[in-house]
Amino acid sequence: MYKKNEIIDGEVIVYADSKLYSKDSLFKCMYWYGGKFHTNISMYDKSTYRISIKPVNDIEYNSEKLKQLLFQLERDLIDFNLRDIVTKETQNLRDLLVAKAFSNGEFDENPPGEISDPIGFIP
């Protein structure tokens, strides 16, 4: 269910659709807020995450700063979700790359790369 993001009593709260945001990305994002904020992730309803942060030192945060914080959190949640998509989509390839890099030839043919010339060395 759609719920508008909000600021209540100095706490910045964002609601995220669990079909769009991965749980991993929420935790990875909250990790970076853990230095200065109390952080929390819970389920608002069956399909909506409730993510909240509250400054540890709330004297530093007036309403203008809290609004900026909300904006930043919304943006960071999107960024971490995008990062998570790339990480998951490319995980096998990264493993293969590292295996090939350190295998002393063992994985060179499997699966094979073909050295073509996309950067245009061959005239």
Binding site: L93, L96, L97, V98, F102, D108, G113, I115, P118
Partner: peptide, 17 residues
């Protein structure tokens, strides 16, 4: 799916390490 240049990339990765 698997870049044909995966071996080039792997060699470059090895160079970095």
């Amino acid at each position: 799916v698997i870049s044909p240049l995966i071996d080039v990339l792997a060699t470059r990765y090895r160079t970095k390490k």
